[in-house]
Deep mutational scan, measured.
Amino acid sequence: KFNKERVIAIGEIMRLPNLNSLQVVAFINSLRDDPSQSANLLAEAKKLNDAQAP
């Protein structure tokens, strides 16, 4: 279950337009470290993406 959620979360994070490459890598590394947190990490990535919108 967590592996599928992690793959989906990674794909979504990679498509967030307002994150820089270091932020994307940090979120992906966090997902690798704890796949059970996929939903929480994706939500945090989306919040950061929205906050950094031009």
Rank of each mutant, 00 (worst) to 15 (best):
A51E: 09
A51V: 09
K46F: 09
P35F: 11
F27I: 05
N18H: 12
S30P: 01
I28Q: 02
A43E: 06
A39H: 09
I13P: 00
L19D: 00
D50F: 11
A39G: 10
L22P: 05
G11M: 14
E5A: 08
Q37W: 06
K1Q: 15
P35W: 14
R32Y: 14
L19R: 00
I8T: 04
S30C: 09
F2H: 14
A39T: 11
A9F: 15
S38Q: 05
L42G: 01
Q37N: 08
K47L: 05
F2W: 06
E12L: 15
G11D: 05
L42T: 05
N3Y: 12
N49G: 01
R6V: 15
S36N: 06
L19Q: 00
V25P: 01
S21Q: 08
E44M: 14
S38T: 08
Q52K: 03
V25L: 13
D33F: 13
F27V: 02
N40H: 12
R32P: 04
L31R: 00
I28W: 06
S21G: 08
N18R: 03
F27A: 02
N20A: 07
Q37M: 11
L48S: 02
E12F: 15
E12M: 14
K46P: 01
S36M: 08
S30I: 12
I8F: 12
K46E: 03
D50K: 10
Q23C: 03
S21D: 05
I13C: 03
F2R: 11
A53P: 05
K1N: 15
A43I: 11
K1P: 13
A39E: 07
K1V: 05
G11T: 08
Q52E: 03
N49K: 01
G11W: 14
R6N: 14
A51Q: 09
S21A: 11
V25F: 14
P54G: 11
R15D: 03
V7M: 13
K46H: 07
P35S: 06
L48I: 06
R32C: 15
N29I: 15
I28P: 00
G11V: 07
N3R: 03
K1E: 15
L19N: 00
S36T: 07
L31Y: 03
N3V: 05
A53E: 07
A39P: 04
L41K: 09
A39I: 11
D50W: 11
Q23S: 02
M14G: 04
N29T: 08
L19P: 00
E44P: 01
K1W: 14
P54W: 11
A26G: 08
A43N: 08
S30M: 13
E5S: 06
N49T: 01
S30Y: 11
L41F: 08
Q37G: 08
N18P: 00
A53G: 10
A43K: 10
I8W: 11
S30L: 14
A45D: 00
A26K: 08
R32K: 12
G11S: 11
S21K: 10
A9L: 09
Q52W: 04
P35I: 07
E5M: 13
L48N: 02
N29E: 07
E44D: 04
L41D: 01
S38R: 06
S36V: 06
E12W: 12
I28Y: 03
N49V: 02
R6F: 15
F27M: 04
L42Q: 02
S38A: 11
Q37P: 03
L31E: 01
D34I: 04
M14I: 09
L16H: 02
I13F: 03
V7C: 15
N40K: 14
L31V: 08
L48D: 01
N18Y: 13
S21E: 07
N3T: 07
L48R: 04
R15T: 06
Q23W: 03
L16Q: 02
P17M: 11
I28F: 05
D33N: 11
K1A: 14
I8H: 06
I28K: 03
D34V: 04
K47M: 08
I10F: 04
A9Q: 03
G11P: 02
A45L: 02
N20W: 10
R6T: 15
N18T: 01
R15K: 08
L31P: 00
E44V: 12
D34P: 02
E44K: 13
N20C: 10
N29H: 08
N20L: 12
L41H: 03
F2A: 14
R6S: 15
A43R: 09
I13Q: 01
N3H: 13
P17T: 07
V7K: 14
A53W: 05
K1D: 15
V24F: 04
S30T: 10
K4P: 15
K4I: 06
I28E: 02
D34N: 10
D50V: 10
I13W: 01
A43M: 12
A39V: 07
D34W: 08
A45C: 02
K46D: 01
L22K: 11
K47W: 09
P17E: 05
P17D: 04
P35H: 05
P35D: 06
L41I: 11
V24K: 13
E5D: 13
L31W: 05
P17F: 10
L22D: 10
E5R: 04
S38M: 15
A45M: 02
Q23L: 03
I8L: 11
D34Y: 09
A39S: 09
L19M: 02
Q23K: 01
S38K: 04
L19I: 04
D50L: 12
D50Q: 10
A45W: 03
K1R: 12
V25S: 10
L41M: 10
P17V: 09
Q52T: 04
N18M: 03
A26H: 09
I10A: 06
N20Q: 05
A53K: 11
E12A: 14
I8K: 11
F27L: 04
V24W: 03
E12D: 06
R32F: 15
L31N: 00
L22H: 12
E12Y: 14
E5L: 13
